[in-house]
Nucleic acid binder design. Sequence first.
RNA 1: GACCCCGUAGCUCAGCCGGAUAGAGCAGCCGCCUUCUAAGCGGCAGGUCGCAGGUUCGAAUCCUGCCGGGGUCGCCA
Length: 590
Amino acid sequence: MNVFSEFHARIGAILRGIAADGRLPGDLDLARFTVEPPREAAHGDLATNAAMVYARDAKPHFPNPRQLATEICYALAADADVEQAEVAGPGFINIRLAPKVFETVLRSAIEAGVDYGKGAPTGEKINVEYVSANPTGPMHVGHGRGAVFGDALANLLAFAGADVTREYYINDAGAQVDVLARSAHLRYREALGENIGEIPEGLYPGDYLKPVGAALAREFGRSLLGRPESEWLGDLRGKAIDAMMAMIREDLAALNIEHQVFFSERSLHEKHDGVSEIDRQLAGLEAKGLIYQGRLPPPKGQLPDGWEDREQTLFRSTGFGDDVDRPLKKSDGGYTYFASDIAYHKSKIDRGFLSMIDVWGADHGGYVKRMAAAVKALSDGKATLDVRLCQLVKLVRGGVEVKMSKRGGTFVTLREVVDEVGVDAVRFMMLFRKNDATLEFDLARVIEQSKDNPVFYVQYAHARGKSIFRQAATVFPGADLSGATLAKADLGLLTDSGELELIRLIAQFPRQIDAAAQAREPHRLAFYLHELASAFHSHWNRGKDSPQLRFVNEESGDLSRARLALVFCLTTVLASGLSVLGVTAPDEMR
RNA sequence: GACCCCGUAGCUCAGCCGGAUAGAGCAGCCGCCUUCUAAGCGGCAGGUCGCAGGUUCGAAUCCUGCCGGGGUCGCCA
């Protein structure tokens, strides 16, 4: 039960009633007002701005918002679940709910267990594409951020009720994978005993290609030595890409990330009966008159090296909100990345996804408009693309920036960070920040595994909840402490302000899920869990000075049961929220 | 030159579709361990929400223009 959406509906009904009397317009947009927790707990349990939002519409019959608010309060007073409704400030309505309502919420949360806060299936198919790192080397920390963000977002949307598909686009078709193949060939020669010296400029120098070279040596022996590139490039490229993807999948597995679909860019270039998928989709756009031969104005400011005015094949993206039309073919006649991306997104549309989310690094921000334009054009405006950009990660060790250079010895891979600080810390820290703000990730600090790291703070709250249950089992040997039994506890015994605060926070969980999913911002959930943990630790500590507030009360089984019911909900919400973030909820942390 | 993101306490950052006296953590200062786990809790102090306009009952939030930081700018992905 979500009390906020529940009361949004009830107040909506009241407004419709007033409209039926002709005192409000009949076509009110009921999505405009909100029901939310008041800033001050002293104001009550719920607050709504409804009277102020509709003040202008109400003017003929209610000269000022407070008068409309009074009318709404009058109707609310008749609701058995409302203890008090009053007008405050310029026209807010503060509602105090009958204690019974929160008992109901708590009870329904216990009964729902891990399903508490979960949205009903909406049937909406959403495709979330994330990571999509080039298969040319191990993932770095920046990739990791996009990976964790995309994964948590996918979890969140699924939890909120969407039908989510997690997808990875393999960029296995560009010049970079040819470079990869040449680099692998060099390592192959090395594996056969040749002294290759310094890795030449323009090839990938990383040690991670050594095992690939060794495997090639085992497979091909000396047969590829001294042969022209054209004889081995294709073979080695395929094998090197496979090896890189295996490595990337391992890196992802270390982060508990698993995609359902791996989509190969190369497959879009493959010809079937002389026609590739890209050919087909561009022909479709051409038939709509959206492709033409033309010239682009030179970029302002300093011209890039080698820029020349030239006629080329362009997509009319300006017709769909972009700033300039975009090229589809390179000067060598091959397709641009944008062209294959058009075919790729068309594939998603054809697979039934009208809602697409792409998670990209911030350095791809310049491509958002053209891709969104392409999706509009491809779907005749029926599909939407929401690109979430993840800002760069600034890796710091003890306050000193770690330079990320593939050539230098200072390159830190994602895997190294995960192995060093653990998957939970990496995931939580990356989600404890807005995706579009730069992230400072301090290795030294995270390694400390101290209270500076909020993940332990939240996890500890869960462990503390479980610890209370262990304690209860000792004090009340043989007692039935299952959820089913606790749901029958006399929850009216929970009257302390700290307990009520915890109940209010628990009641907010479904709303937090909704809000975070709608905004597509998993970090909101991380902050909510931190707040919930904080309230719990705080209340727990009050038991030190006031033993009668402790959750386990030897004197009273009834009181203990009620409080254990609260702790049960608390640990359930913590575990559930952490699981959406992909972070474990340990039972103990000794 | 254009486009995108950011600018909130000394530092790192929240602030939900405009809402009531702008919040948290760290750092600083003062307290709290015979406890259901001190990996914790309480309190104090700390702010021209980058600047200037605009929109309205109301702006950190929306709009415009500046300033500062980052990113991107036909063929790389």
